[in-house]
Amino acid sequence: MTPPAGFDFHRPADLAEALRLLAADPEAVPIAGGTDLMVALNYRRARPRALLDLTGVADLREWTDEGAAVRIGAGVTYARVAAELGGVLPGLAAAARTVGSPQIRNRATLAGNLATASPAGDGHPPLLATGATVTAASAAGERLMPIGDFFTGPKRSALRPGELITAVTVPKAAGPQQFLKVGTRNAMVIAVCSFALALDTGRRVLGTGIGSAGPVPLRAGEAEAVDLPWEAPDRFGEGLAVEFGRLVAAAARPIDDVRATADYRRHALAVCAARALRRAWAEAHPEGSVRCG
């Protein structure tokens, strides 16, 4: 890559400086792992005049245990999410393990995935399924956004000019979580579609997230409302799993593209959602005589 002439490169050491720089130069483009941005630069889809490198910002590099939730700093890589958060955030960690390759996961951040806001971003479905919160900050202060409000269109988000994502706060798992990603090769592939499920066995709540099958990552509201046999877990039957799959597929708004047809995406979502629910229910009720498949 040959950088364009007159290219400014800022490397702030802390968040306050980063926000100050961004306020002074609102056109400066943040760069974290660079795994999306460098591709855009290489293909000249982006020609930023200035880059704001966030990798030196210590405040963004850690995740913290907040009791009921984990606050993931914007600079935390997918490699670390996969390696360190599998116990408390199994759905997100499973998604992290499917992102790109080891080299990509070593650089790519959850916040970068969010800011790109691709409908195919693998981090998004588990964040939707668990009801995560995005923290954005600007020189004017901080604001919190429920994940459901974050995605506004293909590659568009509610992030405002001058704002940085500083953290994503994800409730700890309160039951089994699943993430299934369909791709046409066995690794290093953009999702044809993906599905995340979070079962909260305490509150008896089911969360869902659909990836790569609509203009934005989606929740499947009607599917979340299926009547699960909490009182008699062994009454969970094949019909329920299939019905759940059908409702998830119905919630998707897929298109035909080079990766797959819309019909296939709907079909695959129905299969994945049914499998996810069966697995989660079986995990939640290990003694139950659940029929699987």
């Binding site: 393990r97 499917t98 699943q178 299934l180 369909v182 791709g183 066995n186 690794a187 993906s194 994945c272």
Partner: peptide
């Protein structure tokens, strides 16, 4: 089949 996507 499905590899790291854990589809099956």
């Amino acid at each position: 089949p499905g590899g790291s996507g854990d589809t099956t």
